[in-house]
Amino acid sequence: MTAVETKLFLRDPGGPILVFGLPLGLLLVFGLMPGIREPSAEFGGKSALDTFIAPMSITLVLAMMALTTLPNTIATYREKGVLRRLAASPVSPTGVLTAQLVVNLVAAFAVVLLVFGIGMLALGMSGPENLPGFLLSLVLGTAALFSTGLVVAALASTGRTAAGVGSVLFFPMLALGGVWVPKEKLPAFLQGVADVLPLGATLNSLRAAWAGNDPRLLQLIALGVCLAVCGSLAARFFRWS
């Protein structure tokens, strides 16, 4: 099933181009701007490339895959009756769900590796200074974002509905999570919001670890709670038809 889903994912060139192109394009466009690789007092003596642009590129691909690509695919399968037909065959619908998760996670982490490779080789980007904190934030953030996307996939009856709900979640979290404007420039009461939203908590914990600091406990707790709550809701309300 995973091999089949991988072929279907690659057969539509629009999906891979968007998933791979947008984060890498942002990294290159912003990374080549004058002064972006120079130490800045605004970013604690680190460069904006290391402590904002690179974590933002990684968070964006995770959020896109989790909140739009995965729910849209599963809801489209439900809409077209694919899941219902598979339920009566030797192939379990659970296998389709697992295969979809594997394909999307592999694609997302392939982009993460490309961000590291291109950033370090072409732009002179530094790696995360707090590697354990970075890996913990990456795993928790990925799990929280994908569990949120699974709730959308569990409830949406059509692919169009899933895409709409995913966008409603995705774009406000960009604004409130510290993507469009760094968290430090948000009003004080919104900085707390940025640390508890799944996208914002992922981005800001990655930023902290990249700069050599420990992710805030609030961010990690928020990601863990999101994973537990959304994972339970997705399992409880998931419908195969």
Rank of each mutant, 00 (worst) to 15 (best):
S205Q: 07
V91D: 00
G124N: 06
M125Y: 04
L49S: 08
M173D: 02
L131D: 06
T202M: 14
M65D: 02
G124Y: 03
S92Q: 13
L27I: 11
L140N: 04
R85W: 12
G119L: 06
T142V: 07
G133M: 11
P128R: 06
M1R: 13
G119F: 11
L155G: 01
A143K: 04
G25S: 08
A201K: 06
R239W: 00
A3I: 14
F189V: 07
F170L: 15
P16G: 05
L145H: 08
S157W: 02
S47D: 06
R160T: 13
L199V: 08
M64K: 00
E5M: 14
L22Y: 09
V96G: 00
L150S: 12
F146P: 05
L32G: 00
L83P: 08
C230Y: 01
V152Y: 10
M33W: 05
N104F: 01
L140F: 13
L105W: 13
I118G: 09
P71R: 05
G141H: 12
P182S: 10
V103H: 11
P187M: 01
T161L: 13
A144C: 10
D214P: 01
E184S: 14
A54H: 02
A63Y: 09
R85K: 13
A48S: 12
G141M: 08
V115R: 10
T73L: 09
R160V: 05
G164P: 05
L136R: 13
S40Y: 02
P215V: 10
V225H: 08
R239D: 05
P187N: 04
A162I: 06
F146V: 12
F238Q: 05
L70Y: 08
G133L: 12
D50F: 00
R78M: 09
R84N: 06
T69S: 14
F20T: 11
S57A: 15
A194H: 03
E184L: 15
L18V: 15
G81C: 06
A107I: 02
A211E: 10
A66S: 15
F109N: 14
V225S: 09
S167K: 08
L140C: 13
T94A: 14
T158F: 07
A156N: 09
L70P: 01
G95P: 05
T51C: 11
L62D: 02
R78L: 10
F237Q: 03
W180Y: 14
A48T: 06
L83E: 09
L140K: 03
L135N: 11
L113I: 14
R78C: 11
K185N: 10
V152T: 14
G177P: 10
L223F: 09
T69W: 07
V225L: 15
I118N: 08
M173S: 13
V152S: 05
L131H: 04
R37V: 08
L233F: 01
A228D: 03
R216L: 14
D195F: 00
V96N: 01
F146K: 03
P172Y: 07
G178I: 00
V96F: 08
T142R: 03
L150Y: 06
S89P: 06
K46E: 14
